[in-house]
Simulated scan of single mutants.
Amino acid sequence: MLNNPVWAALSGPQAGYAEAAGDAARYQPEISPFCAVSDPADPEAWRDLGTLTDHALLVGPALSPPPGWVLEERTMGVQMVGTAMTAVADPEAVPLTEHDVPEMLELVARAQPGPFRKRTIDLGRYFGIRSADGRLISMAGERIRMPGWTEVSAVCTDPEFRGQGLAARLTLAVAAGILARGELPFLHTVHDNENAIRLYERLGFNHSANLVFASFRHVPTA
């Protein structure tokens, strides 16, 4: 399940946010760019995916599509799990709602935490910390949700305010809510983001797997 988290989510707890065809699914485009196939080694699943989209972003331990799919971009990633961590809520972490989405998108543009779209907030709870003048300067929330697990995602801080521990506090606040539901938190980061990996290790996350984030373009063969 953790090796194919998007499929586990879209064929399970988050099926209501999916566009699906056979053994393939994707999030509704305004929510997330992620897609999935039930078995990345199954050409028929990739055929199903081709009926949903011409451009697909997938995550998994190995992604080798059949002919008709062209690799556009690939990033090596790390998956980390909080199977033995403790976490606490943060009194300064305020819930974010759809009214905050414009500010959230502006923060994402400055901090570049990864894919975040105007309806990503539909997937779970998001929290933010504001500066003294009311600006949203840090945030984190929930994205991929599968049985027993929820991903901590969009962890970011405005570059002007980094180094104050804001991302750590919000990561723990989001994880606290996940643990309170009886689920376990997990997260992803790029493999060479050593600062982030060390931070998450200090917070109680452990390495689970090396994964690939890859974007493919569908070019149907004759």
Rank of each mutant, 00 (worst) to 15 (best):
L199S: 06
D54N: 14
L10H: 00
G12K: 05
A21E: 12
T171H: 06
T75L: 15
A140Q: 09
F116K: 04
R169P: 06
V108R: 14
T53Q: 07
D48F: 00
A36D: 02
R162N: 11
V155S: 08
W149K: 11
L123I: 12
T189V: 03
L203F: 12
G128I: 01
I197A: 09
F205L: 04
V37A: 00
E72V: 12
D122W: 11
L96Q: 02
N193P: 01
P67M: 00
L203V: 09
I137F: 05
T171D: 07
R74P: 06
G124S: 06
M85D: 10
L63A: 11
G163Y: 07
Y126T: 08
G204Y: 09
L170S: 05
Q14D: 01
P61A: 12
E44Q: 15
P220L: 03
A109L: 11
R135W: 09
F34C: 02
H207P: 08
D100C: 03
V190Y: 12
C35P: 05
F205Y: 11
G148M: 02
W46A: 10
M104V: 09
K118M: 13
Y200T: 02
M76I: 10
S153Q: 06
G50D: 00
E44W: 09
M139G: 07
C35S: 14
R143P: 01
A214I: 08
Q164N: 13
N193F: 02
L96Y: 05
E30K: 05
F161T: 12
N195A: 15
S153P: 10
D39T: 02
V219A: 13
L211N: 13
D39W: 04
G16I: 06
L184T: 15
P147I: 10
C35T: 07
F213C: 15
L2T: 08
